[in-house]
Write a protein that binds this DNA or RNA. Structure first.
Lengths: 200, 200
DNA sequence: ACTGTATGTTACTGACCGGTAACATACGCT
DNA sequence: AGCGTATGTTACCGGTCAGTAACATACAGT
């Protein structure tokens, strides 16, 4: 059936909640969470402040939803790897390195949105903090399990090293103008080879 | 001569400008730059908003002074190394690794203040941005020169790697609750050994 | 004592921002 | 047609915040 909603309007297409979250995501990432007001988000979403507050009870709730979405996408990367290479942790590991490579090269030039959010939302009782912390530990556990499944010794130490290296690189890239992204990928691969489970 | 200023007051001792910068430094680092108002800074400095605005024309100027101070202290680390071990780049390099170790272990648990400032002050025309960018490139140049002087091959690549590793670790530490600080130092040393100028 | 300078105090402005109320409109469904 | 629901519109409240004005105080040097 033909779409009968707003046949003359050019904007909406997607329901307002998605548009608001999309606008928030864009503005939060580009200008920072604290630097963006709810009016600006409503405007960018081609809607208004009232509908924004009907979907999200407060700006803090919107921030939490924003961070939740980011974390969900991060989780989906890992679930996608497990889906694409079931029972093959080595292939999953390789896929993860390739994913890191992609993020580091053509990822946004403003660093990791989740890490940025963690820097901006310092209040320990802010709803976003718990989401961020949970995501980080989930990610670490996934890495440890992956290394463990792939037969690496001391998987938790390796996870810490690679976590710091990749996560840190994303942050530093926004200050350090040169392009050491490829270098980080080489370091990741080198670290993995160094601790390879079955020395050739 | 005896101090005749405010014999009954317990607070001042230091001139107000220093107190203001000190308070700003503490509050900016703990709660974030955008989250702290000028009144709070004046209060914490045991002074008032007027004298704050007499010393710093605006909050942005105060932020710039704050970042300038951070950058100056960062520079002093390198100048101290050059002063303590003149003409001995290898000793300087060792001193720098020890400095990294100290920062990573008992440094603040909120990451690098300069990197946090870079995340919060996204506007390209903000006075703090230029200061931050200049500092980062200065630091990178110092690292490249140090590796070059110490005889390492490909000093710029090595500088990128260590820069990302150390800088990234500081950031990630505030999310990743476990203590992989020691691990990062081991990685630094391992990377340096790997590219050692004179293989044993 | 006189004067200039740095600081403290109070009160204020104007803008912005998060959040809400009240009403109007458009649409889907039966 | 009639109704409920989701959305749009306007106007507003209250608080916070950056920044300023005007005046009062304290001190240093002479």
């Amino acid at each position: 059936m033909v779409r009968t909603i707003n046949p003359h309007a050019e904007a909406p297409q997607a329901p307002p909640r998605e548009r608001i979250l999309g606008a928030a995501r864009d503005l939060f990432y580009r200008h920072g969470i604290r630097a963006v007001g709810v009016d600006a988000i409503a405007d960018a979403a081609a809607t208004n402040k009232m509908t924004l507050y009907r979907h999200f009870g407060s700006k803090d709730e919107l921030i939490a939803a924003y961070v939740t979405e980011l974390a969900k996408e991060g989780d989906e990367v890992w679930e996608g790897l497990a889906r694409d290479y079931p029972g093959d942790p080595t292939a999953q590991l390789d896929g993860w390195v390739r994913h890191c490579e992609k993020v580091l090269t053509d990822g946004g030039e403003r660093g990791c949105a989740i890490a940025n959010a963690a820097v901006e939302m310092r209040e320990i009782d802010h709803p976003a903090r718990q989401i961020i912390d949970d995501y980080k530990t989930r990610k670490r556990n996934r890495m440890v399990k992956l290394f463990s499944d792939a037969g690496y010794a001391e998987p938790d130490q390796l996870a810490d090293e690679l976590f710091l290296l990749f996560e840190g690189a994303r942050i530093s890239l926004q200050c350090c103008s040169s392009g050491p992204a490829q270098r980080v990928v080489r370091m990741l691969r080198s670290l993995l080879a160094e601790h390879a489970p079955r020395p050739q």
